[in-house]
Structure formats: C-alpha cells, structure tokens
C-alpha cells in the first residue's frame, strides 16, 4: 500500500492531505516532508488531514512525535485533523491526541 501526499499552502499555513497507509515502508516520505516544513522559519502552521489514512503504525506515530518535538524548538504549530476511528484510537492510547488535535473552537 502506498502513501499519497498532497500539499496546499497559503501565507505560511500548510495543509497536508495524506491517503493510504503510514508504516515503516512509506513513512520516510512523510518524515522528510513534515520535518522539512516544521523547520522552515516562514512556516507558521502545519495541519495534517488523516481522513484517508486507514492504518498508521508506531513508526508513523513516531514521525508525528519527532515533528511535534521539532515544533517546540521552532515555534511552528502542528495539528492533525479528521482522524478515522482506528487512527484516532492509536493517537488517544499513546497520548498524542490531546497534544495534536485542536480542541473545538481552536483554529483548524
């Protein structure tokens, strides 16, 4: 299974649409793009739409962890949105959900 990434950007705000499975075989493409984005000074916010992601393994979660840690250094805001129930469960179990999913009322 492949991972497709589409990217939209406007005024320092980037939105990534992911489609497919995020696992050890596909994760490098996401890791390279995400870490590159959050480390660029002009990028203020990166949102990742996971509505079309059916499966994510621990290496995929690890990529979001690394990006989140990089954001602490750079001040970039990172958020994930539209998680499928299966992916949401994994984000909740690992404790990433409350750190990466904006609360209702926050900007999305």
């Amino acid at each position: 299974m492949e991972l497709m990434i589409r990217e939209n950007s406007q005024d320092g705000q980037h939105l990534l649409y992911l489609e497919g499975e995020i696992d050890a075989y596909t994760v490098s493409k996401l890791r390279d793009l995400l870490l590159c984005l959050v480390n660029r000074p002009e990028v203020k916010r990166v949102a990742v739409d996971l509505s079309a992601v059916e499966y994510i393994d621990s290496t995929g979660i690890g990529t979001f962890v690394a990006a989140m840690k990089a954001c602490k250094q750079t001040g970039c805001e990172l958020a994930v949105q539209n998680l499928s129930p299966r992916v949401e469960r994994l984000f909740r179990i690992t404790g990433l959900y409350e750190r990466m999913v904006p609360h209702k009322g926050e900007s999305e």
């Binding site: 621990s58 690890g62 962890v65 690394a66 990089a70 179990i93 404790g95």
Partner: peptide, 30 residues
C-alpha cells in the same frame, strides 16, 4: 531516545498475598 522513537509500557506490582494488581500505563495497548 531518538526524536522519532518512543516506548509504550504497562508496569504493575502483583501482591500475591492479597491478589491485588496495581499498575500504570504509558501508551500501551490495553
């Protein structure tokens, strides 16, 4: 640890006299 890595864990203590299991969880599959 490398920034891309993390560890999930469940750790508990079993008291075999009282048969009480006291535990805590760190991101581990239930």
């Amino acid at each position: 640890i490398d920034p891309c890595m993390f560890v999930t864990m469940q750790f508990g203590r079993y008291n075999t006299a009282q048969h009480v299991f006291r535990y805590a969880t760190a991101g581990q599959e239930p």
